[in-house]
Simulated assay, not measured.
Amino acid sequence: MDDIKYSIIIPCYNSSDTIKRALDSVTQQTYKGRFEVLVVDDCSKDNSQDVIKDYISKTKVCVRLICNEVNCGPGVSRNRAIMQARGSYFAFMDSDDYVDSSLLQKVDDKINSTNAEIIYFGIRQIFGKKVIETHCHPRSSKEDYMALATGSLCMFVSAAFLWNRIELPPISNSEDIAVIPILMSRAKHIDTLEDCLYNYIYYSTSTSSKRSPMVAQNFLTSWRYTLKHIDIIKNHVAIECHGIKTVLFGATLNALKADVDNETIRGYWDVFEKDFPNWYQNKYIASLPTKKRFFLYCVHKNNLWALKLYTKAHDFALKYL
């Protein structure tokens, strides 16, 4: 029987310049227990596979390479790794990011002391020379975690059994946010580490930065997946907030960036409001960041003119960070 406790899953596409740094950060962990690293190459056109194979030949850590036969995207790539993972807990990374060397040890200490099934930690966002640290603080209830959860699998470690019969949807963005509330609804205990243990590198060429109507559509696909796999009645307030962030903010913002027409955008809102007509009364809106609350106020008031100004300001801020 395998005694591997952690499986670290890294989808990779054209990452020959960054994958070694990512692998260094996980193979140089201070944690002394057994863990494995699964890298899924998604038909890279550069020499990513050669870099990974060379790395495997030199490291003492269990690093496995899985090669997709066709380009599938990050969701399907992660699904393949999940099917082959042997750990009791899963951690996720992107191939152009890196983690602190103490990540697994601190997570392991928390699991051993609390029996938590999901452990959140802080993130360090790196925009060129500018670094923004967002520390993670405990919530008072599971509903709070579900409503206010981050949209990235990379910011927590989760017990493997929570993934039973869950697959990430086959989309190129927002696949994370489709499954996070489902995982949380299954967990009995969620805990946090305040430390910033994950380092996210912002690239203007990343999928999440693309200006395409498909990016907005993927937010909607993600939302539909969540609704299909979760008990809406039992988790109504939290799921409503998740939908507010996914559809009314995420899909709308990316549609505006891609110059999607007003009628289509209002169509997003109409579909959401059929299921959640009183969404603006959701108690968690008050806990969202000020800029996001302003955006949602404009949606509530049907003020697309103000939303377009917000979108331009948002793009300007990212460009000059």
Rank of each mutant, 00 (worst) to 15 (best):
N302R: 15
P181W: 15
Y98K: 10
E273V: 11
D195S: 04
V237H: 09
F121Y: 15
L183H: 09
I171W: 03
Y55F: 13
D24V: 08
W163T: 05
P170V: 02
D94P: 04
I244T: 05
Y202L: 10
S287G: 06
L304E: 11
M146L: 09
T246M: 09
S95E: 10
G33W: 09
K110V: 15
R124G: 07
D2C: 06
Q217I: 05
I111V: 11
S15K: 07
A317W: 05
D275W: 10
V271E: 12
Y268S: 13
I177W: 04
S88K: 00
N282P: 03
V99C: 00
P277C: 13
D270T: 13
A313S: 09
L321Q: 12
A251Y: 13
N254A: 06
S174A: 15
H314L: 12
A187S: 10
A160W: 00
I19M: 08
N173Q: 10
R124D: 08
C196H: 02
V260G: 00
P170D: 06
V247W: 07
Y320I: 14
V260T: 02
K257C: 11
P277H: 12
L197E: 00
Q28I: 05
D195A: 05
T290R: 13
E133I: 14
T18I: 02
T205G: 07
F272R: 00
R124I: 03
R165Q: 14
N303D: 15
K32R: 12
S88F: 04
K283D: 09
G243M: 08
S209W: 01
K142I: 14
K257S: 10
Q125E: 12
T18K: 06
Y297T: 15
S44A: 10
Y284C: 05
S113V: 03
G73W: 02
M184D: 00
R64T: 12
I52L: 06
T114I: 05
P169T: 02
S48T: 13
T18C: 09
L197Q: 00
W223Q: 07
V37P: 02
S44D: 05
Q49T: 10
F156G: 01
R124A: 06
I9D: 03
P74F: 07
K5N: 11
N302H: 14
Y284N: 06
I230V: 14
